[in-house]
Design a protein around this nucleic acid. Structure first.
Lengths: 329, 329
DNA sequence: ACCAATCGGACAAACGTTTGCTTAAATTCA
DNA sequence: TGAATTTAAGCAAACGTTTGTCCGATTGGT
């Protein structure tokens, strides 16, 4: 039903080839008179290019696919903005598909929808692929890069913060304020990210001469409820005066749970959050955080895809921004 | 470079047609022996189907495109989840593209990337199209539906809440609690949505025998800063005892600004928010809200696309959920 | 006025699939 | 045993583009 290049050709009285060229602005191939005729015909027919067909023959696409692990993660918006901006600057279009965070089958389907289509590259947002799905991704001819997640395997291209530093600096922020008994809440010790944050946390503690206690760390999946559960597990008798939370959401979880326990933040308990999204300034008191450069991560991701020569694993800088949740003792 | 159906055919010693059939599971067209050979060859070659090519010939696609106005809107995640779930149930794949909220050119580009591709339908999330872009959309052969936004023009398919009711019930919630002087903050009076919420607000007031004052309404674009600005404009001397905010974010803005002004919520000021996202339960005190059914909106949207016979403009129910920000006088 | 160069445009192949039609072989039935 | 039916697989066209090659006509130079 939709008008094709041939319809235009017929209407304008020229060949499809010529139509293609004037529509692609390949001046040097046609005269002004024909150009006009073609434009008019195209307009009249309401022509819309069939990109799929074009990509089929040119064997190259200008769409960049982003696979996101879940709808919930609130920092993703910053990364996506970074991707979007730099992609646009390079004339690329961005499409996003959501993969389930848990279900490997949903993950696989999401992966397939981007792989089976001509995309010029794939960005994976804090996505933990199963081995099979990773293989699937690598089997495709498409360049890819993981974002906001790092791997033990050094061969996987990725851009993320230095998680050890994240853990270290978060903890150090509390140590500098005079805290000694410091918890680590809602980091996932099964992930590379979580293990390194934990290691950084422990190193900071030891460097300050305090020996980590097992019950100071309450693992969890970085979520709001994980934060609440961690704080609930601490209870009021833990003796902790500060806790670093695995994410902003988690921090809000411990904040709210602390309040429910009758604790005042930061008077009774100090909190430093990890991520530094706008959430930090929305809650009361505003969360002190070690902030990641999500926007830059996104931007670096598309550059990585564009210039294959880059180093595989890149690190974006972090900074601690002091707000209202750490009390100096 | 990538393996094609012909490569498989050559390797398996059959025709491309047969390969296509076994890969598509068109039993009845091939014997078990050939099937095996083909499967093996496909596996060996790491074959990935070229969906673009397939869609070109079948003239039909199973991807559903969602165009989102901005990364910021936090309720979009619920709608998208609704879309995602029902789409998956119908065997559809979902891709998302972001259009700038302001820039008509970015909007146009986003629209083009979905229109110029074989998609089976387009869902537009609270997107206000320029007339040219609307025309562009309508010119495409693709079915579409607006979500979480309504229009004066009754011909545009859309699914949204009844905005008049939203405004009415939000206001009524405060009236029932004994409030008389009630503000309306951060609704955009340029939009259909905003105008109807305003009308509902005024009707509720009048039905309760209180006549609306011009300085009670402080328009804005539903954002956090719009909320803050509205509250700042009210100041401490307004005499308002309650305000309904245009969105959860806006409500948080008035909440925080009220606090900065030395006001305690809900003791000095009651707030009812519009939207009812999880944000409401994250802040302290938790926001009383008139909640929209975003998930259902998304679900209804994909059904609308699937069954063209449906009525054009649908309304999803709302409910007020009482939390902690309205004080009964 | 003749040859070369340039210009404008057409022809046709190719991209990777799907699918209607055809054909050859194998099976069934009387 | 012969005809009819079923089964298995191949041929080739088609989808809507892009682009290398080719051709005729106009132009310019001498």
């Amino acid at each position: 039903m939709a008008a094709t290049i041939k319809d235009i050709a017929r209407l304008a009285g020229v060949s499809p080839a010529t139509v293609s060229r004037v529509l692609a602005n390949k001046t040097a191939f046609y005269g002004p008179a024909t150009a006009e005729k073609v434009q008019a015909a195209a307009l009249k027919l309401g022509y819309r290019k069939n990109t799929a067909a074009a990509e089929l023959v040119t064997q190259h696409s200008n769409v960049l696919a982003v696979v996101v692990n879940s709808v919930k993660t609130n920092f993703s918006s910053q990364i996506i903005t970074g991707i979007q901006d730099t992609a646009a600057a390079h004339g690329l279009n961005v499409i996003i598909v959501y993969a389930g965070i848990t279900d490997p089958e949903a993950q696989r389907k999401a992966l397939l929808t981007v792989i089976e289509r001509p995309v010029m590259g794939i960005l994976l947002l804090s996505l933990n692929l199963t081995p099979e799905n990773l293989q699937l991704l690598q089997g495709a001819q498409t360049p890819y890069c993981f974002l906001s997640i790092a791997f033990d395997d050094g061969d996987l291209p990725s851009i993320a913060s230095d998680d050890w530093q994240v853990g270290y600096q978060a903890t150090q922020t509390l140590l500098k304020a005079g805290h000694r008994k410091i918890g680590l809440a809602a980091v996932d010790s099964n992930s590379h990210t979580g293990r390194f944050r934990l290691a950084g946390y422990e190193s900071a503690l030891r460097d300050a001469g305090v020996s980590p206690q097992a019950d100071w760390v309450q693992p969890g999946v970085y979520s709001y409820v994980a934060g609440r559960e961690a704080m609930a597990a601490y209870g009021v008798t833990s003796g902790l005066t500060g806790v670093v939370a695995g994410s902003d959401m988690a921090a809000i979880g411990v904040l709210n749970q602390a309040r429910d326990l009758g604790l005042t933040v930061p008077t009774d308990l100090s909190i430093v959050s990890i991520d530094g999204t706008e959430m930090c300034e929305l809650v009361q008191p505003q969360l002190t955080s070690v902030s990641q450069n999500f926007y830059d991560m996104g931007a670096a991701g598309v550059r990585q895809l564009l210039e294959p020569g880059r180093q595989l694993q890149q690190v974006t800088p972090i900074q601690v921004v002091d707000r209202q949740t750490v009390r100096v003792l």
